[in-house]
């Protein structure tokens, strides 16, 4: 079986980590690693790994549009808004790792199948990839969830300048994702940056207000969901199985990164990349 030809646009830490994951994939082949800075560490790494690189950014993708089936966009929301119509015109499927929200929000453990035919899918946020499946599981076990809240704590060092300046957008996008997937009107997202050394690994807590929580069903659904996520995020682990404490339904996970290019503590960055790869691999396996 021939591999699906993919390109990565954006050669920062996220794009470079994605590259390592693509190179390991049995069904994906990176035909182009494109960005603007030929001297970036990511470009250097890609060149050393023998991957074709381009410093022409979007034009690099356009030039080789005919052979690219799918592109991971790891640039910025602002740039993705410009890129998306070009990808659409070229018939290249876009997996958007920015918070641009051009395409449908995709959490592979929840709605992979219904996203496979879409031309553009959005990977929401790191906190969203960790928390939404849990919120979804809680909503499945408890029909009347009144309110859902998620708290993520990440290592300061795993939050780059773009994340730091865009905290408000992160919170908004994560809340929108929770609303959509848990079918719950009232949601809240909270993000903490922790500067402790050694760096803390990402932890995400989901809390819910449920009138009469079915703890047994919740535990079963959450356990099932965690198992599904672990298929594509091996470092995703249940830290606290659902309990009721002070009238709150609470569950907590920890996400260890794979340590491909990004450090292991950056589970927040790893999980969104793992989700993007899971989506692309599913598409590759299904593609004729």
């Amino acid at each position: 079986m021939s591999k699906l030809k993919v390109a990565i646009l954006g050669t920062g830490n996220i794009g470079t980590d994605l590259l390592i994951k693509v190179l390991r994939s049995p069904v994906l082949e990176c035909v182009l690693f494109a960005g603007r800075n030929l001297a970036s560490p990511g470009m250097t790494k890609a060149s050393l790994l023998g991957v074709t690189v381009s410093a022409k950014g979007l034009q690099g993708i356009v030039d080789r549009g005919a052979e690219i089936a799918l592109v991971f966009d790891a640039t910025s929301a602002e740039d993705h808004h410009k890129h998306a119509p070009v990808f659409a015109r070229l018939g290249i499927k876009a997996v958007d790792l920015t918070p641009a929200k051009v395409g449908r929000m995709c959490v592979p453990a929840v709605n992979l199948a219904e996203c496979l035919d879409l031309p553009n899918v959005n990977m929401i946020t790191c906190g969203g990839q960790a928390s939404i499946p849990l919120a979804y599981a809680i909503a499945r076990a408890n029909p009347s969830v009144e309110y859902i809240e998620t708290i993520s704590s990440i290592a300061s060092r795993s939050a780059g300048p773009a994340t730091r300046i865009n905290l408000d957008e992160y919170l908004q996008t994560t809340e929108n994702g929770l609303q959509l997937f848990a079918a719950c009107e009232r949601t809240k997202a909270i993000l903490n940056l922790n500067p402790a050394q050694p760096c803390v690994h990402m932890q995400t807590t989901v809390m819910a207000k449920v009138p009469h929580p079915d703890l047994q069903a919740t535990r079963a659904k959450v356990a099932d969901m965690v198992a599904r996520i672990r298929h594509y995020v091996p470092g995703y682990q249940l830290l606290l199985e659902p309990i009721v404490e002070s009238g709150r339904l609470v569950t907590m996970v920890r996400v260890d990164g794979l340590g491909d290019y990004l450090p292991k503590y950056a589970g927040n960055l790893d999980i969104i990349n793992c989700a993007a790869i899971a989506y692309a691999e599913a598409f590759a396996r299904r593609a004729p």
Binding site: P41, R157, Q197, P198, C199, Y261, L262, P263, K264, Y265
Partner: peptide, 11 residues
């Protein structure tokens, strides 16, 4: 470059 790479270390 070296400082940037150092920023990706665990500890």
């Amino acid at each position: 470059r070296l400082l940037r790479a150092a920023n990706l270390l665990e500890d």
